[in-house]
Amino acid sequence: MNTFFTIVAGFLLVNIAAGLVRVYRGPSPADRMLSAQLFGTTGVAILLLLSQSLSTPALVDAALVLGLLAAVAVVAFVTRIPQNERDE
């Protein structure tokens, strides 16, 4: 069972790696930000899986903190990064 959870965790990590293509391509800053947000969600799932497979309940706390703080960077993005006003 633990091996199965480890395999799924690895599969989700590959998903993050593939998603990095979107960070590379963009094209807009918003695209890159949303990719990072997506990696946070995936990271929460991987931490929960690892907490089960390594029998470390404390990793649930780490997942909780990651989920709680996932949107902090997005708030910083929308309030601090100037967006280009393009012509319609």
Binding site: V23, F39, T42, G43, L47, L50, A58, A62
Partner: peptide
């Protein structure tokens, strides 16, 4: 953006290394 991603992966690495307290701090 890449640094944020790096942080997520680093937290996972600490979790695998059996250091949940550092994983927590990194998250």
């Amino acid at each position: 953006i890449l640094f944020i991603t790096f942080g997520v992966i680093l937290a996972l690495a600490w979790a695998r290394l059996g250091a949940p307290d550092i994983a927590l701090a990194e998250a």
